[in-house]
Design a protein around this nucleic acid. Structure first.
Length: 303
DNA sequence: AGGGTCGTTATACTTCAACC
DNA sequence: GGTTGAAGTATAACGACCCT
């Protein structure tokens, strides 16, 4: 039963006339007459009694009226449901974040994403920049945040923000003075840094090379938590973005001094594979990250 | 290109109320 | 009760469009 025929049938029943119903649905009366004939052929019954002054449903027609209404309501319901589905993002997205970014961004990002896209399954991967990049290239991470210095050309990138780096450590471990610490000073200080797979390490090594020095990295640690613990223990000074240690800086257990003049900076980019079209869930995640940064959802306390 | 579907126009047919 | 005109439906012919 063609829904158009059923709709025409109901209009005729409601108006009591083929002509009036035809006007209502912007067709001519013969077109409607033919639709009803097709419907009657299929039903094997006369559905409308033509009276010469209009039309009225027969007994069979009355039975069909209720069914036609239910069928059309079911079709409209399906259309509405499809419309809702189209407007809502579903699926699953895997997001890669370096620990120093994840420690600040994860909770507000998840909160905002769940508010806007409750039907999307979320998988968070907190790994070093290099691992996140490998995940993006091999396809098990959909969208990630990386340090620009580490990002492969095979990834599409969108600059998100630039952070000034600082020297972070216990107050009694800090070199004298209150101004910024020159990059050259890194040659004389016990520095705590991640290993060479880490984008931050590459950035510091490049800066050291430009200044003609070698950084004294006595201890390497690939974990932000371990770097913080070592700094608390007085075993060295960490080069990092101050926001990664915001609670310690706020509590005063660690202090931060700007590093370099002009300041040493690192850029954080949003990245996804160039060779695959991102899913709707991945696009929604990328948009949430942008919004979060735009609306100040990224805590960046000053040292 | 040919067939099927669906729409339109023109017109035939039917019914009914008003009138004589 | 017969006639007439209005209102409404059915049908034929044709064209546009879509699918195979």
């Amino acid at each position: 039963m063609d829904p158009r025929h059923l709709r025409a049938f109901l209009h005729i029943v409601e108006t009591g006339s083929f002509s009036a119903a035809a006007e209502r649905v912007n067709l001519t009366q013969p077109a409607l007459s033919r639709q009803i004939h097709l419907l009657e052929d299929e039903a094997g019954e006369i559905l409308l009694r033509r009276t010469g002054r209009g039309a009225e449903p027969t007994e069979a027609g009355l039975v069909l009226v209720e069914h036609a209404r239910a069928i059309l309501e079911a079709i409209d319901g399906a259309r509405r449901a499809m419309g809702v589905r189209r407007s809502q993002v579903t699926g699953r997205v895997t997001v890669g974040l370096p620990p120093s970014v994840g420690v600040r961004l994860t909770a507000p990002l998840v909160r905002r994403f769940r508010e806007h896209h409750p039907l999307v399954g979320l998988c968070l991967v907190e790994e070093l920049s290099g691992v996140v990049q490998e995940g993006l290239l091999s396809g098990w991470i959909d969208v990630g945040l990386l340090y620009a210095q580490a990002a492969s050309p095979a990834l599409a990138q969108e600059a998100l923000l630039t952070e000034d780096l600082a020297l972070i450590g216990r107050p009694d471990q800090m070199p004298g003075g209150s101004d910024c610490v020159p990059v050259r000073a890194l040659a004389e200080l016990p520095i705590l840094l991640p290993g060479r797979r880490h984008g931050l390490r590459a950035l510091v090594d490049q800066a050291a090379f430009r200044h003609g020095i070698v950084v004294r990295v006595d201890i390497e640690a690939d974990s932000l938590r371990v770097l913080g613990e070592l700094a608390h223990a007085g075993l060295g000074l960490v080069v990092h973005a101050p926001s990664a240690f915001a609670p310690d800086l706020a509590a005063g257990t660690l202090v931060a001094r700007p590093l370099g003049e002009p300041p040493l900076q690192r850029a954080i980019v949003l990245a996804w594979p160039r060779d695959r079209a991102p899913s709707r869930a991945a696009l929604a995640m990328a948009e949430t990250v942008r919004e979060l940064l735009k609306t100040g959802g990224w805590p960046t306390p000053q040292p």
